[in-house]
Design a protein around this nucleic acid. Structure first.
Length: 291
DNA sequence: ACCGCACCCTGAGCGC
DNA sequence: TGCGCTCAGGGTGCGG
């Protein structure tokens, strides 16, 4: 699920269910590396606090609390942040979708993957964080405390400029695809949108970053912004053949030009979409449109 | 400073 | 039906 658009949609959806509410208590699963802050500490620090804001930094969510401390969240690959009782189909990953059945039911019970359950003083619906693969993260930050993960983040992909990308690209010998996935270069771009933006820009994913021209960087940044904005508009998207029963799926997956379309024909030129591996990740492109 | 790689974990989908 | 295999939209940390 989680690249910038999905995290942003999650933020917008979950913010009203968090902001202004007083936390009554937190329940967790057993300690694991999912918890960068040990569960007992987390429970102690969050109890009685009020969430005052929720912002997104790249693919991270950062909740500010009334005592100046902050809660850092990352959804990893399969993380799901949702309001208890809501069937947020469009926010779920494809893998989660397949096993979604329980969540579609209003009486869904927290399972062994539901690592965080936040209850509120008002007695209303709880906010839950479920993550089957545990690549997600939760960390409590004391007032004024910084975090290397945040410090390392480059400019947000929605705000970055061609100048910034060009400056970062110049010294790098890696494929442009790898450069785009580097969160210290641009915050928020993941595999899907990197492939889509490269397609729109007519750039091969294997193209060396250092050989990108200034004009190409301008085009690339502009197309990254375009695909991210479009995806946010459609409510985020999930790449899957699965059709949501309620039809609430994001529309972006129907618009994607290359991602997970290996062997299918290009919508622009009809050529066959190829899939290669770059830096242990899949990359998709049209040999004809991307030179 | 940069690069490639191993690794973290679970579930889905495939061929047999 | 079940088994073993490969794959997955995330990131970190290590040695070279």
């Amino acid at each position: 699920m989680p690249e910038l658009p999905e995290v942003e949609v999650t933020r917008r959806k979950i913010a009203p269910a968090l902001i202004g509410r007083v936390i009554a208590g937190v329940r967790t699963t057993a300690p694991s590396y999912f918890f960068l802050t040990p569960p007992p500490v987390l429970k102690r620090r969050l109890k009685g606090r009020t969430v005052v804001s929720l912002e997104r930094l790249g693919k991270y969510l950062l909740a500010s609390l009334d005592d100046g401390s902050r809660l850092l969240l990352h959804l990893g690959m399969t993380g799901q942040l949702f309001v208890q009782g809501s069937a947020s189909l469009r926010l779920l990953s494809s893998t989660a979708r397949a096993s979604l059945k329980p969540e579609q039911q209003p009486d869904f019970k927290p399972d062994r993957h539901t690592h965080l359950r936040v209850a509120f003083k008002d007695g209303g619906p709880e906010v839950w964080f479920r993550d089957a693969r545990k690549f997600g993260k939760v960390k409590w930050l004391a007032a004024g405390e910084s975090d290397t993960r945040l410090d390392r983040l480059g400019p947000d992909a929605l705000a970055a400029t061609g100048t910034e990308l060009h400056a970062a690209a110049r010294r790098r010998g890696v494929a442009v695809k790898s450069l785009l996935l580097d969160q210290s270069v641009l915050g928020g771009v993941g595999n899907i949108y990197a492939d889509e933006a490269l397609f729109l820009s007519g750039l091969r994913p294997l193209r060396r970053a250092s050989r990108l021209t200034r004009a190409e960087c301008d085009r690339l940044v502009s197309n990254i912004r375009r695909v991210l904005k479009r995806s946010i508009e459609t409510g985020g998207s999930s790449i899957s053949d699965y059709v949501a029963p309620d039809g609430s799926d994001g529309a972006y997956q129907d618009e994607r030009a290359v991602y997970a379309r290996e062997g299918e024909s290009c919508r622009v030129c009809g050529d066959e979409i190829k899939r290669i591996v770059i830096g242990q990740r899949s990359a998709h492109f049209c040999p004809q449109c991307q030179r």
